[in-house]
Design a protein around this nucleic acid. Structure first.
Lengths: 111, 111
DNA sequence: GCCTACATGTAGGTAGCCTACATCTAGGCT
DNA sequence: AGCCTAGATGTAGGCTACCTACATGTAGGC
């Protein structure tokens, strides 16, 4: 997949995947792959900075845990994150609809 | 609309809009707005360089014309442009489906 | 003379995603 | 011991496509 295609949609993906259950970065990457049927392989160099960015602007909060000797930083949505997710969802619907309208072949106003 | 959202989808939009009838830059911008129901307002600083890029890599060809005293550069798809458009279309379908799967709330595999 | 629509184009900035690398633990295998 | 894989987090630096802002010119209405 063209890497640039994800631009501007990462926030929505990350927020959506931890909406119901808080997850740590590594698990988020796996969840993205799983939920997308293998289509989304997002590298760590993308996810970790993005999570920190989202925490910095207040959409996520995080806490450390140790499981089986490994340290995890688990992220969860804040209230503002939840609101942002809904905005992103409706923005995605608009966006996808707009692109779809343009791309759909042979469907132009009768002229 | 978040500007970054368009990243990596401009090619598909531009190629699609001139698929059936060759158009010049200004008309392409209007066509994008029209076909998207006003959702896509792509600035000239995006469209003109993108068209030149697509011509440079062989997906478009162009020719100058003068209409009503104004000079227009009209772009049309090449064979490779047509193939590229089909690739972009199926890439978009995959992409939209992947994002949709992740974003759709409450639709995770039972368990 | 001024404004708007039509029409094309460039220079420079921004930002977000990616590649590549660095670091550490746990555990299996030989 | 030594090696490898999986789990887990993170940074530095680069790329590049898109955007903002500006520059240029014609045609036509007022």
């Amino acid at each position: 997949m063209n890497p640039d295609a994800l631009r501007g949609h990462m926030d929505a993906l990350l927020l959506s995947v931890i909406e119901d259950e808080p997850l740590h970065g590594y698990a988020i990457i796996e969840a993205l792959q799983e939920r997308s049927g293998g289509a989304l392989s997002v590298p760590t160099g993308t996810v970790y900075p993005a999570l920190r960015r989202l925490e910095r602007i207040g959409h996520l909060s995080s806490e450390w845990a140790t499981v089986g000797g490994r340290k995890r930083r688990t992220y969860r949505l804040t209230g503002s994150g939840r609101r942002h997710l809904e905005e992103e969802r409706s923005a995605w619907r608009e966006f996808a609809s707009a692109i779809g309208s343009v791309l759909r072949p042979g469907v132009r106003p009768a002229g």
